[in-house]
Design a protein around this nucleic acid. Structure first.
Length: 627
RNA sequence: GGGCCCGUAGCUCAGCAUGGACAGAGCGCCGGCCUUCUAAGCCGGAGGUCGAGGGUUCGAGUCCCUCCGGGCCCGCCA
């Protein structure tokens, strides 16, 4: 497809000249052509010759290609292949228009293979903050990227409805007399997180006896028949349906909502525990600090052995999160035969159904055995995730099938922290804390972005009805936040600054959206003028045209690499590069008044829309025809 | 103490996985461009010991080692 065709051709020319198996790569800069190889350096190392003269000699032996215009030996010894722009641009534009935004850039690389992606997994006692948003964006983009390259992708959201955090809000409702309903106009998930959880955490910290109550509650909610269990489900379900509203705004979709409590009540945990006991992977500690707990023996792990064994079952008989997650991991991998039941919860915005686990009344949940399970979890959970992987390996599972997609956390800039009344020492970033109420909610940011975007929209379109302004500014807000978070590679800590994140100009989502809106306007004007698109250029291309064709043609390569490495940032970079190239083209190359160039340029604009739309759908930035 | 991640322009970040051709954007700052397809845009300018030091190599921002600075983990929390 497009650039790969040119690569193949370059490699064919090399092999016909006797250099079999020599690969070409994408050059750093367009001045070095569309493909290059540093092969002469390797050859020179072996033979002791001069790289440049070797390069020249190789170039002189090369035949002619269809899409390669000329090949040069460049000092100090590279071989650069330059496209024949007339032919290559016609081929690229035609190919892109033929495939359309759904197919262009994608591949069948993963066809017939299944991957399970777990993301979001926010405790159902609070609304999503921007740290959670990063998780959702990363997980959702991974899912989209794998789907684009042909994988069958299942998306899971793990609902941690047992454990201490859940017990906290329950303690507030059941024992501390906090109202079960939020104040008027406040969403339930926000009420639980902003008020109940924060207040309970404050009081527990001040009163040691409440800590006891909390532990007792945490144990109680693992017992299926208890009223606490039922109440926990009620609260968790209410919070969950609120959280999902935010997730839709973030652009996510899910196939399965897996309630953690079902790991226990379905028997998945006890079955797993039996296996772990049978294999001698866990032991009951008879003495020491872990007395009375069932622990994983980590003594033979090269690193974890230094930190003591991991507790799976507490001395009061309740399970830890790692225990439940081991059982869950086995099930995700399809290496447990325990049947999990579920029912339809609702539908995604795209119309696909969402199943939620329901041990008592549901129907069996079936999906194919995944080649890989990807769990999107913050880097602070590296240790427990490694424990899980280690136990899986002990059970005979190929550890490579269980991938922890780790990302660094989101903290608040001193300026943004100050808005929450938190003063940071010496201008340092402030860590968010759900317990202490220090965080910025995803919806707050989206609302602020939407407000700013609406101002801009109204200024440009005083005649637009309110509904259209609303729709457009919502799409701009969504694109802006998603872009600003995905801009940073996962292993980079993000310092969130509200002012920085709510920009609508420069290196932002709206910049991309705007370039597409502009291109749609050209299409509209062209139709009015009766102009017909034609993929074949008239005469030599301008440098702006070449650059635009170039970055359009490289898209399949970028997506392929992103799917392989899961470095999602390069998708964002490519989208921006496409938009930059389009804006420069827009500035320098009139389409409607382009005379003999008009038809080709119109086709090129169409190809830009196809390529950029394909990529924006992958990154999750809404496409707008007008803004 | 042990382990993991990060350190590139005043600020926010690309580039490092597969070493190669002048280290790139954006924001901010200075100066230009709207009777011409939406100026949420474009053009130009100033701004860098790629944290420091060693090593490997014909060649290191990129690989290896040491150190310094920042973050995270090492809980009967998740």
């Amino acid at each position: 497809m497009t650039i790969k065709r040119l690569f193949q051709e370059a490699e064919r020319l090399l092999s016909e000249a006797g250099l079999v198996g020599v690969k070409v790569s994408p050059p750093k800069s367009p001045e070095f052509g569309e493909a290059f190889t540093p092969y002469p350096f390797e050859e020179a190392r072996r033979s002791g010759g001069n790289p440049l003269s070797l390069a020249e000699s190789i170039v002189s032996r090369l035949g002619r290609g269809e899409f390669i215009g000329h090949v040069e030996a460049a000092p100090p010894g590279f071989i650069n292949f330059h496209a024949d722009w007339a032919r290559f641009s016609a081929y690229t534009v035609r190919e892109v228009l033929r495939l359309g935004p759904r197919e262009y850039g994608g591949s069948r690389e993963g066809e017939g293979r299944v991957v399970l992606v777990e993301h979001t997994s926010v405790n159902p006692n609070k609304a999503l903050h921007i740290g959670h948003a990063r998780n959702v964006y990363l997980g959702d983009t991974i899912a989209r990227t794998l789907a684009k390259t042909g994988y069958q992708v299942y998306v899971l959201n793990y609902i941690d409805d047992s454990g201490a955090q859940m017990a906290s809000v329950l303690l507030g409702f059941l024992e501390l007399g906090m109202p079960a309903e939020p104040p008027l106009g406040v969403r339930f998930d926000e009420y639980c997180g902003d008020q109940v959880y924060v207040e309970v955490s404050r009081r527990v910290e001040a009163d040691r006896r409440l800590e006891e109550r909390l532990r007792a509650l945490a144990k109680k909610i693992e017992e299926r028949e208890s009223s606490e269990f039922k109440y926990a489900r009620l609260v968790s379900d209410k919070v969950l349906s609120n959280q999902l509203l935010t997730c839709w705004r973030l652009g996510a979709r899910y196939d399965l909502l897996f309630r953690e409590s079902d790991v226990v009540v379905s028997g998945l945990w006890s079955k797993t525990f039996n296996i772990l006991q049978g294999r001698g992977i866990v032991y009951l500690a008879a003495e020491g600090p872990n007395r009375g707990c069932w622990c994983v023996d980590l003594s033979s792990h090269p690193v974890l052995s230094k930190e003591g064994d991991e507790i799976l079952v507490k001395s009061d008989g309740s399970t830890t999160y790692v225990a439940r997650d081991i059982a869950f991991a086995l099930w995700k991998l399809r290496d447990s035969d325990v049947e999990i039941r579920g029912r339809e919860w609702g539908v995604n915005p795209d119309g696909t159904p969402i199943i939620i686990t329901e041990t008592e009344t549901g129907a069996p949940i079936v999906f194919p055995r995944p080649e890989k399970v990807i769990t999107v979890v913050g880097s602070e959970q590296r240790r427990p995730q490694e424990v899980i992987r280690y136990v899986l390996t002990k059970l005979g599972v190929n550890g490579g099938r269980y991938l922890h997609y780790s990302y660094e956390r989101v903290s608040l800039s001193p300026d943004s922290a100050r808005r929450l009344g938190v003063e940071s020492a010496e201008a340092r970033a402030v860590q968010m804390s759900g317990r202490r109420g220090i965080y910025i909610k995803a919806d707050e940011v989206l609302d602020e972005l939407k407000r700013l975007a609406a101002e801009e929209v109204r200024r440009r379109h005083s005649d637009w009805p309110a509904g259209k302004v609303d729709e457009t500014s919502e799409a701009i807000a969504r694109g802006a936040l998603r872009y600003s978070i995905l801009r940073s590679e996962a292993d980079k800590a993000v310092v969130f600054d509200l002012r920085e994140a709510t920009r609508l100009e420069g290196d932002t989502g709206p910049y991309i959206q705007y370039s597409v809106a502009r291109s749609y306007r050209i299409l509209e004007k062209a139709a009015d003028a009766g102009l017909k698109a034609k993929p074949t250029p008239h005469g030599p291309l301008t440098s702006e045209e070449k650059m635009l064709v170039r970055s359009i043609s490289f898209l399949p390569l970028t997506i392929e690499m992103a799917a392989k490495s899961l470095r999602l940032r390069q998708l964002v970079t490519h989208s921006r590069e496409l938009a930059v190239n389009f804006n420069e083209f827009y500035e320098k190359c009139p389409v409607i008044d382009g005379g003999e160039h008009a038809q080709f340029r119109l086709a090129l604009v169409e190809a830009y829309i196809v390529a950029q739309t394909s990529l924006m759908e992958l990154i999750g930035i809404p496409v707008l025809r007008e803004m």
